[in-house]
Amino acid sequence: MEEILRVENLKKTFKLSRKQQALEKTKNKYKVAVNGLSFSAYKGEIFGLLGPNGAGKTTTLRIISTLIRADEGDAVVDGESVRKNPDGVRKKIGFLTGELKLEDFFTPDYLYDYFSALHDVPKEESERRKAKLFSRFGIEKFAHVKVGDLSTGMKQKVSLVISIVHDPDFIIFDEPTNGLDVITAKTVTDFLLELKNEGKTIVISTHIFSLVEKICDRVGIIINGKMTAEGNLKEITREKPLEEVFFDIYSREVGSDE
């Protein structure tokens, strides 16, 4: 199996502001969000990063997508290191999360063209791809409606489409179904499976067991910034359902910490 993503010993510590200290109910000035995390994702699979709130999933995915820098360790995407060549990584990945927003003022059509241009997609190819994706997600009707006037579900679909204008082979998706109704959520998960069938590699983060069980090939369980288990979903769930496996690990990890 071809390794598309290799994450090696990632570490990230945040300095907490006073407000954050109050919010997290801690007196510590620093928060170790990711603590020596390693895992790999292979070509053509969907990898699920499963963990509770605050486990460090988003931080990990932000490091891989070059939005923030790790204090230690590295992530290599298809041969490009986020540390040494972040621009190279950006060309290869599509990154999506609910918190990546589109500007309300513009239309999906305009934004598609804009991001296509930023990704250096040739005009003709961009038009062809736009037509295909807009039709796939039923965006055509709303192509010239300002993003601000779209429903949450439609916004999410437009974001999804715009994050893959450049047809990346590696896609990162932080909490893909968060805040979506069941219908839109299904559209999104169906599409992820479609992409997988096209041979794309996908890494998602979630705290929803059923989502992992439904679409992931392999899973990594992340707790307190550490990878506590990583493996084939079928192998991991051979003896117990995923939820029970998770709680076993969780009580062992958190118990040993305190």
Binding site: R90, I93, E99, L102, D104
Partner: peptide
């Protein structure tokens, strides 16, 4: 404003310098 609305991150994952 872009920071507050989360639109800047969308730009920063593209390969633009």
């Amino acid at each position: 404003g872009e920071k507050e609305r989360g639109t800047i991150a969308t730009l920063l994952v593209t390969p633009i310098k």
